[in-house]
Design a protein around this nucleic acid. Sequence first.
DNA 1: TTGTACGCGTTATCAA
DNA 2: TTGATAACGCGTACAA
Lengths: 348, 348
Amino acid sequence: MKRKITLKQIARELEVSISTVSKALRNSAEISEDTKQKVQAFAKLYNYRPNNIALSLKNRKTNTIGIIIPEIVHHFFSKVIRGVELVANKRGYNVIVGLSNESFSKEVINMEMLANGSIDGFILSISKETQQLQDYHHFNETMSQGMPIVMFDRVVSDMNCDKVIVDDLNGAKNAVEKLLRNGCKSIALITTKDYVSVGKLRTQGYLEALEKHQIQPKADLILKIDDTLDYETRLDALENEIKQLFKANNGIDGVFAVNELYALSAMKVARKLGLNIPEDVQVIGFTDGVLSKHSTPSLTTVSQHAQQMGEKAADLLINKLENNIETEEEYFQTVIIATELIERESTK
Amino acid sequence: MKRKITLKQIARELEVSISTVSKALRNSAEISEDTKQKVQAFAKLYNYRPNNIALSLKNRKTNTIGIIIPEIVHHFFSKVIRGVELVANKRGYNVIVGLSNESFSKEVINMEMLANGSIDGFILSISKETQQLQDYHHFNETMSQGMPIVMFDRVVSDMNCDKVIVDDLNGAKNAVEKLLRNGCKSIALITTKDYVSVGKLRTQGYLEALEKHQIQPKADLILKIDDTLDYETRLDALENEIKQLFKANNGIDGVFAVNELYALSAMKVARKLGLNIPEDVQVIGFTDGVLSKHSTPSLTTVSQHAQQMGEKAADLLINKLENNIETEEEYFQTVIIATELIERESTK
DNA sequence: TTGTACGCGTTATCAA
DNA sequence: TTGATAACGCGTACAA
């Protein structure tokens, strides 16, 4: 079981100095053709590759991006990762993944772990717990150490860093307007508690759409789900809450849900109550998931372009990493990714 | 924008030597209480953390695991990653992700990239293209350099390395037997071309189940899909092929599909042909996905325990990495994860 | 044309 | 009790 070959070993074998080998391999003009040939041939034979760790230490640059997400078993986040990976690899970076599992402490620990030299910068979406606690000291510390952060989707709005967000407000607004144009008179909203930033924005979009059409929002039509419950109990509880929503409000003819699961559950409940989709109730969800496409009826959704978000985030981060010549004052941008309404069978 | 603080800076600031600082921080008995206190206080104040890269270089150990998968936007693989990450973090390792995107060359490049010192070992599932080409030189090279590999799910059977696989054959066999017990007489199989190792095994399970029940397999009932087609065109093509399957065989009353999408498509096509599920046709899929749970009717599936596979793979790899005292001859094991039949609405 | 010396940040060993 | 030195693997400025 032989180790990887190093410059030193090549040098010893060929009885030249290490720097000669180094230069020969980088095709330096300083080295004679003879030696170059000899060294290069030998290196090829033994499949020499420079050690990344040594390079990282020397260059104080790892060419690695750390990505911290709350959950990986999730279409949105895995698509974002794919986008990040795509761009990162193209630009010569690796991607190292940390999962916060929606926990504040795991987020902190993971970041500290990676921040100690393993990576050059972060791309992250904050955990629900962090959103609740509103404790952002780890982000500030990381940044004050000169390590850039790009936040995506769930961001801290008053933090000085690059951000990539979905146009949640307008995405929601457009969706609700679509329902209104389609003739819906009584549109229910199924959303999350307000501390989830994206849920809040989508709620706002719903309200603005109603307002624009001069419709008075009814509190009864708005269902705010506490999604900190665990997944197993959640499904039953969810459907129950939605059933109450339908029963408490006669004549719901449209539903806007801030994610895929809520939307699907709404369809399920509606059908159980004898309502047809889209004839009696039209439903729109907010998501990039697979369920929408394959459900029956398939679900009209507001697409978030998750992969594009990942790509953009990676580009922003790498640009920052490579622009050492940047202007004195830090310049941060917030990129807003437009949503797209994908019409399927759940709307007319 | 200050950099991270180093031993050297602390030493200079406190006017002691670097090694004193190092020892003081590790609470060495060699150092006086006074100095220790002073150094530790200062380090805490400036939030000193040793640089991982320097440690990696020195220890020739990165404490990082590389995971190479064909695709991340996929429930099975993201669940595996979660399992790997869980165990890895618990045992003090990070996880770095490489995507092959089902391409041989990307797999090779990604592995070379990571093998040059970035990681201590690999966990991987090989790409379809690699399976077709049967070119495994990169695995052999990596291992001959002393870097351990753990393969999962899609493995190379005659390769000397640890493996974690699903019991594809028996999982399939059990599923088909379930259909037989439920009264199915004419069971169709929707599978992949044989070069996909798991597809092949599941096909074999189907055949064995029939054989056990002394049923002659009919070639017409077996549909082998070429899944190298891209995703967009695939859905239509897929449904078309399945429709042909149904039309060519009157009286299909059971379908076993080697993945979720095939199973769902089968249900869709069956319904379009006026067949009821599970009354007229019973369907079982093979997967860990979300679609099964939320489809209508929900799909009975053979669960693969993806997360458990990831956990096991990580344990195997880390054990190998940390057992330097191992026996002389290399010892490799293949762990077989049992499947579980999750019964839902698509079977009686 | 080749080799020496240095530094990246750390720890271990040995000397003072 | 403290400090100097070497080493991990590499690239480069400078000396020979």
